[in-house]
Write a protein that binds this DNA or RNA. Structure first.
Lengths: 152, 152
DNA sequence: AAACAATCGTTGACTTTTTCAATGATCCGT
DNA sequence: ACGGATCATTGAAAAAGTCAACGATTGTTT
């Protein structure tokens, strides 16, 4: 993997016009973020993916696995693995779909919500670390722009 | 992988507070972007990764493979594969490091720059597609914020 | 209502990507 | 000149991603 240093890099290459390529900027920020996030989530036996699933399970929106796959840009079979893992550890349950008996709704258990709260707190620290260079306003701006880019 | 639809999704789950998780927003935007980018780059036998390497090789910055690995958050062995591929196709060359004879400097060939120009144009179209929901100003803002988050 | 195609979750096979340890060559500090 | 560190490279192992098929169920068409 790349650099695991906690110190800030001062990359000579950042000058390249590649620094204007949104795709690369996203990839890089996502990569460094994932590293930090996964490290923080390891304390709870979670990774970015399983945390996302757990978050949706805790949201009260009662997502189906298909919705999870679509929303997280995953193959349905990957969702099966993620839910299997979380279910075996008692953090979520599969419930039968209400209108559609093929679908399974993923809901959190009390233990799942407990773990999720702790993990979420740890992630917030991570996020602040990663976005330390941004002011509070800029932080909010970034969120807003990302959301807008994703779904108008 | 997830949905390959060109139509805009209107995801029920976007409401979840997960929509404020920068990590997930980055992951999702990066995922959908990669899909588009790789599809566009396929015409030139490139992918996001190899395009990034080619871009740096064309930048005149004469990056070493180690610098590429750090900058792109890749394992050094992955850079070997990427450069191998580009070199076999005559798009880049390995040159000996100037101060450090261990290091190898990656520079583009004329053909590499030709392909890169074409690919870059194709990617710009992609980018506009992906960020269609953003105004010109917001587009620039997003770039600026991502860069600032990465290196102050 | 019977037949049909489509969708959901799941499984398993397969490919690609990532991760990691080891190696020879070279650099740097002492 | 010695020892430790860094560079590119290799190869193996682990993880992630892709894809086709299946039973169960749904919605649609006849």
């Amino acid at each position: 993997m790349g650099p695991q240093s906690t110190e800030v890099e001062t990359p000579r290459l950042a000058e390249a016009k590649i620094g204007n390529d949104v795709g690369l900027l996203l990839a890089k920020l996502h990569a460094t973020g994932s590293l930090l996030n996964n490290k923080a989530l390891a304390d709870y036996g979670l990774r970015e993916r399983s945390f996302s699933v757990l978050t949706l399970a805790c949201s009260g929106l009662e997502p189906t696995q298909r919705e999870l796959a679509d929303f997280l840009s995953l193959d349905p079979s990957q969702v099966v693995s993620l839910v299997d893992d979380l279910e075996h550890r008692g953090l979520v349950k599969r419930a039968q779909g209400k209108q559609d008996r093929r679908a399974k709704i993923i809901v959190s258990t009390a233990e799942g919500r407990r773990i999720h709260n702790k993990a979420r707190a740890a992630l917030e620290v991570c996020e602040q670390t990663q976005l330390a260079g941004l002011s509070e306003d800029e932080n909010a701006q970034l969120r807003a722009l990302l959301k807008k880019a994703l779904w108008g």
